[in-house]
Design a protein around this nucleic acid. Structure first.
Lengths: 347, 347
DNA sequence: ACGAGCAACGACAACGTTGTCAAGCATCTG
DNA sequence: CAGATGCTTGACAACGTTGTCGTTGCTCGT
């Protein structure tokens, strides 16, 4: 017994396949009585329309593609979760693909989704700066970028610069003059924006930006324990940390705990699980993945209906969650003597 | 300019569409020179085979379906991540669908995947006990259950009973006689198995199982703060906790912290982020989602190739991560007298 | 009563791909 | 050299669905 198609339904209800198609697609030109007969047969046979045939005919299928760094990252997982939930109400499925931050793989995945699966839309966290190969599809497949800005597409982001400014300003206001920028990862435009805010706030406060206080991810990896040790071994070590993303925040918290320096001032960009249970509780810039995911899918659905429109940037608000670690004042410092100059600070 | 199909490639390289198809599918019966001409044209045109047409023809498509409770759950997120990574190497995409633990929605999602999208296989965490509607597809679509056992399908699980036994035994060995079973959620067969192990270990040790020490999830929700408060308000409160899943573990840790009782003995089933940074670090039964996901996808790939075979259960090993919280001994207790009795305890 | 107009429905092609079958061609066998 | 064999290739149908267009039968206005 093969699975029933539109044909079997037609036979069972004594109408043509076209009429079944009409009923399934909710077209109006069907007599109520006929419609009822067809629905009955559908029910009885357990008919489910074949998505493949549908998208073959219509040129665009019943799924949307989501391309992200990795699902193992809780931020992206929640993002996709929000998207999937909303997509379900629209009768759309979600195809996930991960890039592992590799531009080639990003290309491969996006092409597979757009050209292969003919997705009804793409939501993605861009890795490469430009995606020329996507051009031929622009007219037919709506695309929304998330988390990272993109000149060419609609994008849903948070105001990295403003949020970081508030956080760093708070640390400066507490007397910190040695603030580490923990994990500057050149691969992400968002982090570069956060770094710029860090720089600007320090400069505005007359505090020199010390390259020694900047931690770098090189070749995609940063050994948090080693890096934290390096920072504390400096002749003039940091009194506060700004973690540029939640992974770095977790790494920092962990490495601080390992060396028994839990009680260090820090703020992380991006909330993480249990941040409020640690002692001290970790102050975070809350960048809500559900909010971002929702905004992205809503925008995508709009784009599906609308004709073409100019790419826009959609900014999702953030909050600074003041939990404790970001409210620790700088320690009193004795006046320093020689070359390194007087950097007394306090309260 | 339409997107190029097999037809355009055929024209460009001066062969028939069938030969292009042969090249694309890596069939051998093509002269190297012809093959080269075709590959050239494919390259030049940026041809990508249309998945919809393919699965329409073959009756089974280039994606596998993964159906889980929610992607927002880090356990499932990592699980799907492992699956997606492996699927990519096989040229398969991943369709995710969440159930929200609703059996009806599970049905809807699975049918959409199997009948609608004609997925090449299904990996799912079963909600309902039985899935009769899946029967007609059994012959053509391989199915693997994860995390929760299922009689009808191959399933990848951990040995809940054994792992729980070890954990509870450890607590008993440390002198605990009042061990709470934190979050008995009837909806999950895994949790019921863990509960049985808890019961059996206590009984074997001659410790009565006190219903007051069992926390229940009712209607899918448990207020962790209230529940923790209730337990400590008992005339004879627990001295140790067994959290039956990581969500409960996180909830427990959080609520303990809120009332300043961090220093309570506990073991959680399921590791979670930062468990090793908390003070005390939280002892967990590590149920590695990557291991489970990998086992599931490997099994699925096997089933795709193989003819039918008897459903089997695949048990993935777990480890008890002894980090501190599970190694806290019971407080000394004065000898107990009569019935209602004095049960004061304390250091 | 008669044609116009409309609502309901059906026949057929087409979407892009692969499976079936057969044809073309060169090489080998006796 | 005829026929057999093997390798490479192509024509055509089919997968399940929807769009196009045509057909049928009814209602309405005159």
């Amino acid at each position: 017994m093969r699975r029933p198609g539109i044909k079997e339904v037609a036979e069972q209800s004594g109408v043509s396949i076209k009429t079944v198609s009409r009923v399934v697609n909710g077209e109006t030109a069907v007599r109520p009585e006929t419609r009822h007969r067809v629905l009955d047969a559908i029910q009885r046979l357990g008919y489910v329309p074949n998505t493949a045939a549908r998208s073959l005919k219509s040129g665009t299928g019943g799924a949307i593609g989501v391309v992200i760094d990795s699902l193992a990252d809780p931020f992206f997982a929640s993002l996709v979760s929000a998207i999937e939930t909303r997509a379900l109400t629209e009768g759309l499925s979600v195809l996930v693909a991960s890039t592992g931050l590799d531009a080639d793989r990003e290309r491969e995945q996006i092409l597979s989704l757009v050209a292969g699966h003919q997705v009804a839309g793409i939501i993605f966290a861009p890795v490469a700066e430009e995606l020329p190969y996507l051009e031929p599809f622009r007219k037919v497949t709506p695309v929304v970028a998330v988390d990272r800005a993109s000149a060419a597409f609609d994008s849903v982001v948070v105001d990295d610069y403003a949020a970081t400014s508030v956080a760093v300003q708070q640390l400066v206001g507490l007397g910190h003059e040695r603030i580490a920028f923990y994990d500057r990862d050149e691969r992400f435009s968002t982090i570069l924006r956060r770094y710029r805010a860090y720089q600007d706030v320090l400069e505005a406060a007359g505090i020199p930006v010390d390259p020694d206080l900047v931690s770098w991810t090189v070749d995609g990896a940063l050994d948090y324990s080693a890096e934290t040790a390096r920072l504390f071994a400096l002749s003039d070590p940091p009194t506060a940390f700004f973690a540029s993303n939640s992974k770095a925040g977790i790494g920092l918290v962990t490495s601080l705990a390992h060396i028994g320096r839990e009680n260090t001032a820090m703020i992380a960009f991006g909330d993480f699980s249990l941040a409020d249970v640690l002692r001290p509780a970790v102050s975070c810039i809350d960048q809500d993945p559900f909010l971002i995911g929702n905004a992205a899918i809503e925008r995508l659905l709009e784009l599906r209906a609308l004709p073409v429109s100019e790419p826009r940037e959609w900014v999702v608000p953030t909050t600074l969650l003041r939990r404790g670690s970001g409210e620790i004042p700088a320690p009193l410092r004795p006046a320093v003597s020689a070359v390194g100059s007087t950097r007394g600070g306090a309260l």
